[in-house]
C-alpha cells in the first residue's frame, strides 16, 4: 500500500519545517520525549515493535533508522494526538491509515532550502563542473530530494554552466507528497531573499529573480528548469538501483539512518555510479566511517564531494 497525505496536512507541516519564523510563537509540544516515568528499555521495545508493525503492515521500513531521531518524532506525534504510550500510537496507526499518513510525514523530515550550504555549490562549480564538461551526456540522481529546492538549484547551476542541455536529472524521494510538490516547483515567496543570498554566495552568475515569477505568496520557478528533470518516488531502503549515474547527490538523508543501513545504501550508490562518478553527501556526512571509504577519493573534503575510483 502506498501512503500519501492530503495537501492540507502537508501545507500545515511545511511551516513548521521551515523553522520558527521570527516573531511567531514556538510550538507547544517541544519536549518530544517520554514522560519521566517511562522505562527507557520498555520504550525501546515498544518503538521496535511499532516500526516492525509499520513495516509488516504498510511496507515502510524505518527499522534501521537512527533511534534518537525516530524517538523524538514519535513522541511529538504521541503528544499531538493526546496519547500516552508508544503502543497506543501503534494501535491507532495499524487500524487507521489516516494516522499512518501523519506518522509517515512525521518520520520523513523534509526540511530543505535552495542552495543550502552555498559553499557546496561553489565547490561543485569549481571541482565537478570541469569534469562533467568532458562527458557528452550526464545523468544525475538526487536521492532524497524532498520538495525539490536542491534540484532546481542544480538545474540553475547547470544552466549557467552551459551543461543543462546534456543533463538528465532523476530526483527521487520516499515521500510522494514531497515529490508532488517538487514537481509543482512553487516555493514560499518569503524565502526568496534568503535564497537569493545563497545563490549569490554559491557563485550564481545572473539575477536570481530571472528564474521565478511571484504568484500569490508563492514563487513559481520557470518550467524550463524542469525540462530535463524526472521526479519519482523511490525508497532507498527497499528499492533497487535504476540506472548508471555520473553524479549522485544524497544530502542530509543518511543522517536519519543507522550505520548498517547507511552502509547498505552506500552499496547501492556505489553500484549505481559509473567509474569516476561523483558522490555528494551533506556537509556533516562522511564516507570516512563507512566501508566504502577506500572506493572513493576526495574531491573536496570540506564539502563532502567524492569520486569513485574503484
Amino acid at each position: 500500500m502506498t501512503v500519501s497525505a492530503t495537501e492540507p496536512t502537508a501545507t500545515g507541516r511545511r511551516r513548521e519545517d521551515h523553522g520558527v519564523v521570527p516573531g511567531s510563537r514556538p510550538s507547544t509540544n517541544e519536549s518530544a520525549t517520554a514522560p519521566l516515568s517511562y522505562d527507557p528499555e520498555l520504550e525501546r521495545l515498544e518503538i521496535e515493535l511499532l516500526l516492525e508493525g509499520i513495516y509488516r503492515h504498510y511496507g515502510f521500513d524505518f527499522r534501521s533508522y537512527a533511534y534518537a531521531s525516530i524517538r523524538r518524532r514519535l513522541w511529538r506525534r504521541i503528544e499531538a494526538e493526546g496519547l500516552k504510550t508508544v503502543s497506543s500510537l501503534q494501535d491507532r496507526l495499524l487500524h487507521e491509515p489516516a494516522m499512518m499518513e501523519r506518522v509517515l510525514l512525521d518520520l520523513s523530515i523534509n526540511v530543505t532550502a535552495m542552495f543550502r550550504d552555498p559553499t557546496f555549490y561553489l565547490a561543485f562549480r569549481q571541482k565537478v563542473v570541469p569534469l562533467l564538461r568532458t562527458y557528452p551526456f550526464i545523468r544525475i540522481w538526487h536521492a532524497g530530494c524532498s520538495t525539490g529546492e536542491e534540484v532546481y538549484s542544480m538545474a540553475i547551476l547547470l544552466e549557467e554552466e552551459g551543461l543543462y542541455e546534456r543533463a538528465r536529472i532523476y530526483a527521487t524521494d520516499i515521500n510522494e507528497v514531497v515529490v508532488h510538490r517538487a514537481r509543482a516547483g512553487i516555493f514560499p515567496l518569503e524565502r526568496m531573499q534568503e535564497y537569493t543570498e545563497n545563490y549569490i554566495r554559491a557563485g550564481g552568475t545572473r539575477s536570481f529573480s530571472e528564474y521565478y515569477i511571484a504568484k500569490y505568496d508563492g514563487a513559481l520557478f520557470s518550467p524550463a528548469l524542469q525540462r530535463n528533470v524526472v521526479f519519482s518516488q523511490h525508497n532507498l531502503v527497499t528499492d533497487r538501483s535504476f540506472a548508471e549515474f555520473n553524479v549522485i547527490l544524497c544530502r542530509n538523508v543518511l543522517i536519519y539512518f543507522a550505520r548498517d543501513l547507511q552502509t547498505r545504501v552506500h552499496g547501492l550508490f556505489h553500484e549505481s555510479l559509473v567509474h569516476l562518478g561523483i558522490l555528494c553527501l551533506g556537509s556533516k556526512e562522511t564516507l570516512r566511517l563507512s566501508t566504502f571509504e577506500s572506493s572513493y577519493e576526495e574531491l573536496s573534503s570540506a564539502e563532502k564531494i567524492y569520486r569513485k575510483v574503484r
Partner: peptide, 16 residues
Amino acid sequence: LIERGFFSLSTDAPVR
C-alpha cells in the same frame, strides 16, 4: 542527538 556510544545529527526544525 546522543545515541548509545555515538552521535546522530538531524535537520529537524529549530527548537526555541
